[in-house]
Write a protein that binds this DNA or RNA. Structure first.
Length: 875
RNA sequence: GGACGAUUAGCUCAGUUGGCUAGAGCGCCACAUUGACGUUGUGGAGGUCAUAGGUUCGAGCCCUAUAUCGUCCACCA
């Protein structure tokens, strides 16, 4: 016997996964309708977190199910170099050994991180295996693979030529700690406490002063104007005059601009074009100079004046305030709470700084994306996320894709330095391994920056499927970083667009939005037909998980403790699209128990059938046979319809309930008296198939242990609809009801006694004597001429429990309560049927059903009354 | 400031176009038991579906307000 008493996940899982991989079971079959999804490239820099486990688990359910359904199925795994994310991790590693990025050249750093990631990535891939993910490993794509970089450069080139990528100086979100800029979406806005200071700027003509309010007095040193609203009558006369900028010797104009809000503060606002995005735009409109007073290291630069140079911005703030105080120019302050941008990694305050960067012009791309969404080209789960995304697109500003870190795909642009004020000339070239290139006799220098990770992962669906391979211009030389993987599946282009994308709600904006835009741009198609977004997995008390709070649940720990299947089933239990929900350990326990239950069903079946069992065509014989086929049919239908609507929890629950409540509790029990080997084997096999997408390891482990099965369960076909006799199934249902009533009554009576079951000319009971004896807590089933004891009223059979008068009397109260409940029900049904509007307006079949229910209830009432009379006659 | 979501059993949550006795897991109570499984079996208790109105023959579900909690977005000096 290969079945241990309890299922041991950790002993079985690695063996089973190796078996699948050895049999190449994850590769697409090449026949059938294509079904595809891709892994959001998990960061190659560390461990999988619970969100990865959840997301991959969901996708794997879809993939395994469709594979069994006969689709040509692929789940393309990925690994992301995760530019900035990895960079942060790597810098920490450097710090540990007392080094920093400045100790190395850019190329050295790139090489080192490459090795670091290569090592880490193996770890991540092992964890994906531990989760049981059936992804096509031979088709794994790393975001720095040659084919990725080629396509990314091709996209870049086209966008450059189409004018969708441009070089521009703007205020960017800059982290002075990490020394790189960020896209708007990477900035973490927090409500911080601060002060709003009122400061007087004296008019040059000596006729008074203008008071402005600011939260950042240190930027005063870079002011180049004061703005008031053109409609503001208070200041109308001052527009065009000049004020003397305190602490400097500069005179700056008072200008009229819509940006100044009359209702805020004094209505006059200082304009610092170099340090505020709004002011930058005001500066553009009014042709104001930009004076940068804070450097990229976060320290004040010489333009701030000698007495401030070298101070941190915060120190400069204090000094500015002190100095203003001495000049008597401070007019008040008040504590406020305002939103301040922080680096989402280190928490430093984001410094808005002017910089030349590469930007993607998003308007035309967003417009296409909006049209596609509104056109219904993508189905969103939950539905409202489509609207949320459209809202996002409508307000999207140009996307900064330059990052000042060495780790990433180098920006393929080279510039020629121009003397004088002329802007440099830029050329596109993919020879990024060189810092200088010569084109037509002119030397060009490489831009040192790398691309935002999302620019490459935003092209993931068509890159991983090689959809554009024919039109991507071949590169002259082999990329040094390519990972060659043997046996890649040929011609994956059929898998684009992907059937479905599924990821966390946190990726809707940074990733999904870009995949749609870039997908439409490059392929004229949406990247996938369905988008399912799941909510966040919160900790057990409903808090967000975070390393700093120390409440992170590791999927690997859960797998070690409960098994991979239990993790997968437990994590999806009770979750619905888009909703963030707390992690529940008890769901995992329940799922673990289910796996053990399944294992033990198999143990029972194998024991019954014995090693020598050979399968034959099956014939349904007993009523239980017909009934269980009906139940399995229903479960199959439920899984199908729920998965079609991405209702994972409901699909999984249908499997759980059917296998536990129907197969184990009734069918297996019924098979303890008589059994039909072929049907028993069929029921087990069908159960395993239904459960396989949800609990792949235990089902395959059982399949491999069964004496009569060969091949792999993962490659088996999904169950087909089976025929059964509905009359026979109903008969079993009827016996089930009788048994349940016997159990209930017996439970309610004192003394834990078993009684004889008596019946009078009841065909069904007569032919199922041994079955009933097996299922119900009774001693014997006896045929009688004259009824006595207690009538089993609810199930409607001519059946009695052979209970003595004393005990029967004890049951009187139960009977009275039962009677009252039935009377209530009759009253309710009666009332409904006396409602003319109900009869007229409700659907006919509903009315019929109500009538039927009333008839049945009245019959039951009669039986209960008879019963009561008998009991009372004893009393 | 804007948008979205949630409020259902002790806890965590389902409840698909409104349909009649609102479900699951865990927990709880009682009982059982040594041959598939104690990671078990049987039975049970527990919900005026946040509140107030409305629409409807019928509302957990639709509409309108209110309250509480949460998330996201945002260039508020």
């Amino acid at each position: 016997m290969k079945f241990s008493k309890a299922y041991e996940p950790n002993e079985n899982e690695p063996i089973i996964y190796a078996l699948w991989e050895g049999e190449n079971a994850f590769a697409p079959s090449g026949t059938g309708q294509p079904y595809s999804t891709v892994m959001p490239p998990p960061n190659a820099n560390g461990n999988l977190h619970i969100g990865h486990g959840f997301e991959m688990g969901l996708k794997d359910i879809l993939v395994r199910y469709h594979r069994m359904k006969g689709f040509d199925t692929i789940y393309i795994p990925g690994a992301d170099h995760a530019g900035f994310e990895t960079w942060v991790v790597y810098e920490r590693e450097l710090e540990k050994i007392g080094q920093s990025r400045f100790d190395f050249s850019r190329d050295q750093l790139y090489g080192q991180v490459w090795d670091f990631v290569a090592k880490q990535r193996g770890n991540m891939e092992l964890q994906i295996r531990a989760l049981g993910i059936s992804c096509s490993w031979q088709d794994l794509v790393f975001t720095l693979d040659k084919k990725v970089v080629d396509t990314v450069y091709d996209t870049f080139k086209r966008m450059w030529e189409d004018g969708l990528i441009y070089r521009g100086e703007k205020i960017v979100n800059y982290c002075t700690e990490h020394q790189t800029s960020f896209a708007d979406i990477e900035v973490d806005h927090q409500d911080d406490k601060g002060y709003l200071w009122d400061i007087a700027y004296p008019l040059v003509d000596g006729s008074g002063e203008v008071v402005i309010s600011t939260t950042r007095p240190e930027t005063l040193l870079g002011d180049t104007a004061v703005a008031v609203n053109p409609k503001d009558k208070r200041y109308a006369k001052l527009v065009g005059k000049k004020v003397k900028l305190p602490l400097t010797d500069r005179k700056i104009p008072i200008i009229a601009d819509e940006h100044a809000d009359m209702t805020v503060g004094t209505g006059a606002v200082k304009i610092t074009p170099a340090h505020d995005p709004n002011d930058f735009e005001v500066g553009e409109r009014h042709n104001l100079p930009r004076i940068q007073v804070i450097g990229f290291d976060g320290l004040m630069v010489s333009a701030a004046g000698d007495s401030y140079r070298g101070l941190t911005a915060i120190a400069a703030r204090d000094k500015v305030l002190d100095d203003l105080e001495k000049l008597g120019l401070r007019r008040g302050e008040k504590a406020i709470t305002h939103s301040v941008g922080h680096c989402y990694k280190c928490g430093s305050v984001i410094e808005p700084l002017p910089m030349e960067q590469w930007f993607v012009k998003v308007k035309p791309l967003a417009k296409q994306a909006i049209a596609a969404i509104e056109n219904g080209d993508i189905k969103f789960y939950p539905n409202n996320k489509g609207k949320v995304l459209v809202g996002y697109y409508k307000n999207l500003r140009d996307w900064n894709i330059s990052r000042q870190i060495p780790w990433g795909i180098p920006i393929p642009m080279f510039s020629k330095f121009e003397e004088g004020d002329n802007a440099p000339e830029w050329v596109f070239d993919t020879r990024v391994d060189q810092t200088e290139i010569v084109v037509n006799g002119t030397t060009y220098t490489r831009d040192e920056d790398t691309l935002d990770t999302w620019f490459s992962s935003g092209q993931w669906p068509f890159i991983t499927t090689g959809y554009l391979d024919d039109e991507t211009e071949p590169e002259p030389k082999e990329g040094k970083n390519s990972i060659n993987r043997p046996g890649q599946t040929p011609d994956l282009a059929r898998f684009y667009p992907n059937t479905v994308m599924e990821n966390g709600i946190d990726l809707l904006f940074p990733w999904d939005s870009r995949m749609i835009m870039l997908g439409l741009y490059r392929t004229n198609q949406v990247p996938w037909k369905d988008l399912y977004v799941h909510g966040m997995v919160l900790d057990e008390s409903g808090q967000k998980m975070s390393k700093s709070k120390g409440n992170v649940v590791s999927p690997m720990e859960m797998i070690a403790k409960y098994g991979s299947d239990a993790f997968r089933m437990g994590i999806i239990a009770g979750r619905s699209a888009g909703m963030s929900q707390a992690f529940s350990k008890s769901n995992m326990v329940a799922a673990r128990n289910f796996c053990n239950k399944l294992w033990n069903i198999a143990r029972f079946v194998q024991d019954k059938l014995e090693e020598s069992y050979q399968p034959h065509d099956m014939q349904l014989e007993t009523s239980a046979d017909h009934w269980i086929v009906r139940q399995l049919n229903a479960a199959r239908r439920s899984v199908e319809s729920n998965l079609a609507a991405y209702r994972f929890a409901e699909a999984s629950e249908a499997v759980y309930q059917t296998i536990w409540n129907d197969v184990a509790d009734w069918y297996v029990e019924a098979n303890k008296t008589t059994f039909n080997p072929d049907v028993l084997a069929f029921v087990l096999e069908t159960s395993l198939k239904l459960a396989h997408p949800f609990a792949p390891f235990v089902t395959e482990a059982i399949w491999q242990n069964l004496s009569w099965t060969d091949n792999l369960l993962i490659k088996e076909h999904w169950p087909e609809k089976m025929h059964f006799g509905s009359e026979e199934a109903k008969q079993f249902e009827s016996i089930k009801q009788l048994v349940t009533e016997v159990r209930l009554v017996t439970n309610q009576l004192p003394g834990n006694k078993r009684y004889n079951l008596l019946f009078q000319s009841d065909q069904l009971i007569d032919t199922n004597r041994s079955l009933i004896k097996q299922l119900a807590p009774i001693t014997e089933v006896q045929d009688i001429d004259v009824p006595h004891g207690m009538r089993l009223a609810v199930s409607g059979h001519a059946a009695w429990l052979d209970i003595d008068a004393r005990t029967l009397k004890h049951h009187h109260a139960n009977l009275v309560a039962r009677l009252a409940a039935v009377e209530d029900e009759i009253a309710r049904l009666d009332m409904r049927l006396h409602n003319d509007n109900y009869i007229k307006k409700a659907p006919g079949e509903l009315v019929e059903e109500t009538k039927h229910q009333l008839t049945e209830a009245k019959k039951l009432l009669q039986r209960l009354k008879n019963e009561l009379e008998i009991t009372e006659s004893i009393a």
